[in-house]
Design a protein around this nucleic acid. Sequence first.
DNA 1: AGGTTTTTAGTACGACTGTGCTATCAATCG
DNA 2: CGATTGATAGCACAGTCGTACTAAAAACCT
Lengths: 202, 202
Amino acid sequence: MVDPAERRLLLAEAVLRVMRRDGLEQASVRNVAREAGLSMGSLRHYFASQSELLVFAFRTVIERIGLRLAGLEPEPDSRRRAQRVLNELLPLDDERRAENEVWLAFTSRAMVDPALRALRDEGYDVLRACCQAIVADLSAAGLAPADVPAEVERLHALLDGLAVHAAMRPDIHTAASLTAAIAQHLDALARERASQDVSERG
Amino acid sequence: MVDPAERRLLLAEAVLRVMRRDGLEQASVRNVAREAGLSMGSLRHYFASQSELLVFAFRTVIERIGLRLAGLEPEPDSRRRAQRVLNELLPLDDERRAENEVWLAFTSRAMVDPALRALRDEGYDVLRACCQAIVADLSAAGLAPADVPAEVERLHALLDGLAVHAAMRPDIHTAASLTAAIAQHLDALARERASQDVSERG
DNA sequence: AGGTTTTTAGTACGACTGTGCTATCAATCG
DNA sequence: CGATTGATAGCACAGTCGTACTAAAAACCT
């Protein structure tokens, strides 16, 4: 017998493929089943409703990102650690570009589909917690201003803004330009803190 | 006789109402016609296809924003001018919150609907030009770092990121917190430039 | 082996979609 | 006044949608 969890994952990945190729509104039960090489009835055996299917698909994306973050090798230097985590969150390669587009589609649909809202908020919270950890870390190391909450807000918005731009204009916002933008921001944070420290001493 | 342009505008506004209330995918020919108090046939008399209707609706949004920007009273102080323009671009009141949600929905759909892509790119370009003007202005006034392109990228991403966050979590990202985030960023730019100037002199 | 449960497939139903088409009403013009 | 054009309405068509349902096949268990 086939592992049910495996089948569900197979279907979730079919959802993501269809979503990315044709848009979320094309991720119908029929299309997803065909994409996965199964029948509608079979899909329905694993997911009682379409909403359940979509939620599961998005959840796998969130979990995948979480796993990647947890799997990062330890890095003693605050600045390098920040850069590495942020690079993990940016759509730098095809896999993460796909995840990013899925995130955008879900974010948009969650505006009007209450069933997706809780999960969307969960993704938001995870990302914000990441930013919080990064900024707190940098600030403690003297590499970011002392006003942590304000800098969390700024970093989080910058990150999601870059993600949206990368989805809209992948030709303009390349992997190189994205990492450069983040690096520049981190440099700016460090410089700001430095000038803060100077004026405090004086 | 009724002015055709007026009727088209009436229908466009119906599109925006439906989009915001029920999502873009609910902005069908039938629903929009009903929302506008017209028949399907009548709608089709003004718009040959649904795509044409949606494009026109989004265009009116872009034009409305452009008109608001053009209508801003002159402000001699660079910093205050920047703040004012940026506040105009942020979803601070209900009208602009609606426009912001429409923008998000269009951005998402344009990922898979080529007919919307050109218009979405136009909106992107307009916003980027705004950021460009603001940063160049601030930089010339000694209130932003000398590396204008890099700061344009940062401001643009920050702006769109805040917009997305405001759409996702209007309870968290209030008008006050949005303006505060922008003000904080402008302060940071000025401080960065100041420390740049100091180190150049020394 | 025989019975039971899981998995798959296929179909049917009612609702909705965009578009094409015709018919009616209003208004303008010759 | 008649005729032409613009505006509105409403229906028909072919297609897709989510879901419910039945029934066959496969796998598992005793």
